[in-house]
């Protein structure tokens, strides 16, 4: 019973991390059909921002929840203006250019901070499920993922800005005819996606090693979650994270964490073959 509880908790934790990691990518891909291969590096920048702030004496929660997203949002803004906006509508070219950006950011951070693994200490203690000790930070991650999804959903559903965002996504020409400037919306969307990636990086900083190459470990997971989720950003990402997170956690439990990852990626490939439009391309089409 306690083991089941622990396993459930781990599964929820893994789903929550996957949601946080994928949401930024999902926003950018879902809204703009831009596959941002530098997503992992935005996560990395968020983690670095958190670590550097924490080292400078800033409150860790402030660094993680405010500084990291703001910093990455700004970086996203610069990247959109300087690189991505020239390539809208050329999907493969955006992938290549953002891959270049990804390599460049890895190189830049390596030059600045060296190819070493940093970290911050976990701010929360642990608690026990029966005889098992587990981390309270996991609870925070689960709650945060739920809160971010809820806020994003409410924002898209009820705010005027959310309405404009969805309208531009559906039909940019019509939105432009009604007085919206699509380029400005794209800019804001890209920055929002980058900020979400930064938030994920901040949240990851205490639980994973922070190094220039850390993004590569997340990028594949985040991609297939977004592609597997389909066009509805929040519902899709949530459902795909639920499915893949469960599979990877169960496989990790049975074998090793590496094969947990492999199982996740294999499951994703099979699912893309079965549902090429993603989960919400087939089911729940009217969701956000």
């Amino acid at each position: 019973m306690a083991l089941t509880g622990l396993l459930t908790f781990n599964i929820l934790n893994s789903i929550a991390l996957l949601v946080l990691l994928s949401l930024g990518l999902g926003v950018i891909y879902g809204m703009m059909k831009v596959i941002n291969l530098a997503h992992g590096e935005f996560v990395m920048l968020g983690a670095y921002a958190t670590v550097l702030c924490a080292d400078a004496g800033v409150n860790l929660w402030l660094a993680m929840l405010v500084v990291a997203p703001l910093f990455c949002g700004l970086v996203g803004l610069v990247v959109e203006r300087g690189l991505i906006r020239f390539l809208y509508g050329r999907m493969i070219d955006t992938m290549l250019a953002s891959w270049g950006l990804s390599l460049g950011l890895i190189g830049l951070v390596t030059t600045l901070f060296g190819n070493t693994v940093r970290g911050v200490s976990n701010p929360l203690g642990g608690f026990t499920i029966g005889p098992y000790q587990t981390s309270l930070y996991g609870v925070f991650v689960i709650l945060l993922a739920m809160a971010v999804c809820g806020l994003l959903w409410a924002g898209l559903r009820y705010l005027r800005f959310g309405l404009i965002l969805r309208a531009t996504m559906q039909n940019p020409d019509m939105a432009a005819a009604l007085g919206v400037a699509p380029p400005r919306i794209y800019m804001a969307t890209f920055a929002l996606g980058a900020a979400l990636a930064g938030l994920a990086g901040g949240v990851l900083a205490p639980v994973s090693g922070v190094s220039p190459g850390m993004g590569a470990a997340f990028i594949a997971k985040a991609f297939i979650t977004v592609l597997g989720g389909g066009p509805a950003i929040i519902t899709g990402t949530g459902l795909a994270s639920g499915l893949f997170g469960t599979i990877s956690e169960l496989a990790s439990f049975q074998t090793t964490p590496v094969f947990g990852q492999v199982a996740l990626l294999l499951a994703a490939i099979i699912m893309i073959r079965l549902l090429p439009q993603g989960i919400t391309g087939r089911f729940l089409r009217r969701s956000v």
């Binding site: 290549l96 250019a97 891959w99 270049g100 390599l103 460049g104």
Partner: peptide, 17 residues
Amino acid sequence: VINANLVLGVILAAFVL
């Protein structure tokens, strides 16, 4: 002095653009 990844990344992005 200069990181190889940085140069490769700049080359890739510059050529695409």
